[in-house]
């Protein structure tokens, strides 16, 4: 569903739809979107852009622990891991994205990586999950400054 302009936060050149949460823990840049009793996890526009075209994603865990790695990614500029914003169980892996990781660069907010059943509702309420525009903007501005410094 197309979001209205006011439902999308723009920070620098990056867009952040406000229909989901953003995990700032471990500078993970993972978005979390509710889908029924489960949540979808994906990579935000900041990470998708700064990593460059992804060549590879592999999901490495079935049981997720908040703050722990759940996938490996590789691009021309990155060899790194993705860190989970929630504890819970993976109920589905997006095979289309596994097959063609560039979908993440093309549409970061549609190309989800895993669907997860969180261990409890509290998993979606911790302070490192950001949903308010001001908090997301402040964090991303810090991240842009860090990137420019590098």
């Amino acid at each position: 569903m197309e979001l209205k302009a006011e439902q999308v936060l723009k920070v620098g050149e990056y867009e952040f739809p406000l229909d989901r949460l953003y995990y700032r823990g471990r500078n993970a840049h993972i978005w979390v979107k509710r889908e029924g009793e489960a949540v979808l996890l994906g990579i935000d526009a900041f990470l998708a852009e700064s990593a460059g075209y992804l060549n590879y994603i592999s999901v490495t865990a079935e049981e997720l622990t908040r703050g722990e790695a759940f996938a490996n990614i590789e691009s021309a500029k990155f060899v790194s891991k993705l860190y989970s914003p929630v504890s819970g169980r993976v109920v589905e892996v997006n095979s289309e994205v596994m097959e063609n990781p560039r979908l993440v660069n093309q549409s970061p907010y549609e190309a989800w990586i895993v669907k997860v059943k969180p261990r409890s509702e509290a998993e979606l309420g911790h302070e490192e999950l950001l949903g308010e525009s001001e908090a997301i903007a402040a964090w991303i501005e810090e991240e842009i400054a860090r990137l420019e410094e590098e």
Partner: peptide
């Protein structure tokens, strides 16, 4: 070996961009 051409963060090791 993990020179700065790629950001490498794995097994507790993280390289520097410069």
């Amino acid at each position: 070996s993990a020179p700065s051409a790629k950001r490498y963060e794995i097994a507790g090791f993280k390289n520097s961009p410069r």
